Amino acid sequence: MTRRATCLLLVALTASGLGAQPAAELPPLLRADGALSAAWRFVGFPKQQADLPPTRFEAGRADGVPAVRVLTASSYGTLVQDWRGPAPARLQWRWRLDEPLSGGQAPADILTKAGDDAALKVCVMFDHALDRVPFVERTVLRIARRVSGEALPAATVCYVWDSSHPAGLQGANPYSKRVRFISLQGQGAALARWVAESRDVAQDFVALFADELPDGAGTPRSAAPVVTRVLIGADSDNTASTSSGWVSDLRWATGASAGTP
């Protein structure tokens, strides 16, 4: 395994060790007084693997909207919420990118290991059946689970704001196919303005992991495994670049509310 792949597993392990609890709603990112909520915990690379600067998460306002500011500088980090249960109808949030990945030693390119950074991301982890995972990746996961004593996530769907490709790009993380992504905003997207997103994460899981499901692309969304955690983050450690953005109003939407981001 590469250093980056090992770190990805260990980061997932750190998140999984936080003790996911059943919940009906996602806790808000901000408290009523505008400070960061303690329900969301920071997870970065383990120091024994990489002494990387942490991505910064700060409570603030952008155009009057209370939000979490996400700042990278050759850094990595996520805010994680342990939430376990079947995926509700939609996951909704608002985000804006003020400064795309720039000033780095290498160009950002989410399809390559050297450029695998994202200025903003919202990810959902699933309790995917291990027997659906290809043999080599399954073996790596089993070893890591045995050594750690934790049930590492076998599947993660990430929604990214990409700085180098047009929106709509889908694929697997170049370090691990356990993480697959959809680029919702991409190169050329307007900066410094709020964008509302609304995703059926169960359907997106089925589409992205169709090769590991019994009926492939024809599988209904009900076949998606339960969600184990949700996170927001950004990283610029591979390209040694910087970025600045915001995330707000992250929530599950059900019933009539599912149609309005």
Rank of each mutant, 00 (worst) to 15 (best):
A73M: 13
D215R: 15
L213K: 08
N238C: 11
L141N: 01
A118D: 04
P166M: 05
L213C: 10
A32R: 13
G188P: 07
D235I: 12
V206K: 04
A155L: 08
C123F: 01
M125L: 05
D211C: 09
A59I: 08
P134T: 07
W40L: 06
A67W: 05
A258Q: 14
D215L: 14
T2D: 12
D131T: 05
M125R: 07
A167Q: 02
A119Y: 02
A144N: 00
A15D: 14
R84D: 10
A114R: 11
S236W: 04
D211A: 15
G77L: 14
H128M: 09
S243M: 04
S236D: 01
S222E: 11
V136R: 07
V201W: 13
L71G: 00
D249F: 05
A20L: 10
T242H: 12
G171C: 04
V70Q: 00
G245H: 03
P153A: 01
F205I: 07
D33K: 03
L30S: 04
D204P: 13
A144P: 02
A12F: 10
A192H: 05
N173D: 15
Q185W: 04
V80R: 08
L9R: 02
P46S: 09
P27Y: 13
F126R: 01
P22K: 08
G168Y: 02
G19H: 13
E25Q: 13
A224Q: 02
G103W: 10
Q49A: 14
A224G: 01
I232G: 00
D211T: 12
T72L: 03
I143E: 04
W95H: 08
R132E: 10
S176D: 06
P261S: 14
A5W: 06
R90P: 07
P28T: 12
E25F: 02
A5G: 05
S248Q: 12
C7A: 15
T239S: 05
L18Q: 14
D127G: 03
R229E: 02
L130C: 03
V247S: 00
D204C: 13
S148K: 02
T239K: 04
R31P: 02
Q203F: 06
R31E: 12
L169A: 01
A144H: 01
P214L: 11
L101S: 07
R84L: 08
L30P: 00
Q185R: 08
R3Q: 12
V80Q: 09
A155C: 02
P153Y: 01
L213P: 07
D116S: 11
K113C: 06
V124N: 01
S257M: 11
D33H: 11
P88K: 04
S163P: 01
G77W: 07
R193K: 12
G104C: 05
I110F: 05
P86D: 06
Q49L: 10
A224H: 10
G19E: 13
A20R: 09
L26K: 09
P86T: 10
P134D: 08
S222Y: 00
A62T: 04
S163Q: 04
A89D: 15
A256D: 15
V195M: 03
L120P: 00
Q49S: 10
A256R: 15
R3H: 11
T6E: 14
G19Q: 13
L231D: 06
S248E: 09
L10N: 09
L97V: 07
L13R: 11
P53Q: 02
A167M: 07
A67L: 05
D200L: 04
P261H: 14
L8F: 14
A217S: 11
L208W: 00
Q48M: 05
L169T: 04
Q105S: 14
F57N: 00
L26I: 01
E150T: 02
L111H: 11
